[in-house]
């Protein structure tokens, strides 16, 4: 009905050709069910998580659950503040490191690389996204964390650690197992997502605009900074949001290196935990209704946060695409 502008429905007599119309109706119906199934899955996830989390919210209250950090299976007192903070802090570190790097990569591929180099470099960076997160976890635990503890962490503690105000952030035991390490590994994992969105949106900038900027004597950097970036900032924001959504929900890589300690520290080199790593570590061991429900409650909170972030990303990228079509028209 809604597809009335479709050519097939306009054919006279097509609809009352009985067996053919039956086939159409059948295929239309099963593909419709499959499409509805996608919506249904999302709805079912939210409903089931909400129902599963109910005992925890009833016992502790939603806001109290979010604002207390006590996590004691023996006394059955649970608060989600520490994993929530760990998730947000590690993702923030990931964005702080990953964003400039992704921008540099997108800039290199779109503006600097000779044509024969664009594809191989782009593919190699995208392969970073294909490597499963458990591999990042293995590598992080056995290779990167010791390396970080021996070489980079002392360096950061000796330099940035002496600064007033932010100095306290760069303290902690020399283990390499920390919220900061998790943030670095997350950064590597989200670089391919952010940089490929940036690349795509940078390439939508009309050549005439680039050329006119070059024509009045701009350097490559000035073209990117004053022409390309302002034109694509909505799309770039969408890419950042996409990376952030990925970082927030990442499980295995973080579980290996974050330390899994239910503690809150200002220092970034202290072990901590994230929502996803807490669920991964404790879910199968959780005995008692409230314990399981508290973990599911964490899952629900994570799902809602990532849903909002990813929805924002989608909206921004759609706005970018709409503007692009406007340019061409």
């Amino acid at each position: 009905m809604n597809s009335s502008d479709h050519i097939l429905n306009a054919l006279p007599g097509a609809a009352d050709h009985a067996p053919q119309a039956l086939g159409d109706r059948f295929f239309h119906a099963i593909s419709w069910f499959a499409a509805v199934a996608v919506l249904f899955v999302l709805g079912a996830i939210i409903v089931m998580l909400y129902l599963g989390a109910q005992p925890a919210f009833e016992k502790f209250g939603f806001f109290q659950f979010l604002t207390t950090s006590e996590w004691n299976p023996v006394t059955e007192m649970f608060g989600g503040l520490s994993p929530l903070v760990g998730t947000l802090v590690s993702s923030a570190i990931a964005i702080l490191i990953g964003l400039p790097v992704s921008f540099g990569i997108a800039l290199f591929i779109t503006e600097m690389a000779p044509p024969w180099l664009k594809r191989p470099v782009g593919t190699a960076i995208e392969l970073l996204a294909a490597i499963p997160s458990i591999i990042y976890g293995m590598w992080g635990l056995f290779v990167f964390a010791p390396f970080f503890a021996d070489h980079i962490q002392p360096l950061l503690t000796d330099t940035l650690g002496n600064l007033p105000l932010i100095g306290n952030l760069f303290q902690g035991p020399p283990l390499g197992i920390s919220v900061f390490t998790a943030g670095i590994i997350l950064a590597i994992m989200i670089i391919p997502f952010i940089s490929s969105v940036m690349r795509d949106v940078f390439e939508t900038v009309p050549t005439e605009l680039r050329e006119s900027a070059f024509g009045i004597g701009s350097t490559t950097w000035e073209v990117v900074w004053h022409v390309v970036l302002p034109l694509t900032k909505v799309g770039v924001m969408g890419g950042i949001m996409l990376g952030l959504g990925r970082a927030l929900g990442e499980t295995m890589a973080v579980t290996f290196v974050i330390g899994n300690a239910h503690e809150l520290h200002a220092a970034l080199f202290e072990p901590g935990n994230s929502i996803a790593s807490t669920i991964a570590n404790e879910f199968t061991e959780a005995d008692g209704e409230v314990y399981t429900a508290s973990l599911i409650a964490l899952g629900l909170i994570l799902f809602i946060i990532t849903f909002i972030i990813l929805a924002l990303a989608k909206v921004m990228l759609l706005r970018m695409a709409a503007r692009q079509e406007g340019h061409q028209a």
């Binding site: 996608v38 899955v41 999302l42 996830i45 998580l49 599963g52 996409l242 959504g245 990925r246 927030l248 929900g249 990442e250 499980t251 996803a276 669920i279 991964a280 879910f283 973990l295 599911i296 899952g299 994570l302 799902f303 990532t306 849903f307 990813l310 929805a311 989608k314």
Partner: peptide
Amino acid sequence: VLLSAPSIVIGV
């Protein structure tokens, strides 16, 4: 959105 949804939540 589901494309990037956290997979641990799907496990739960």
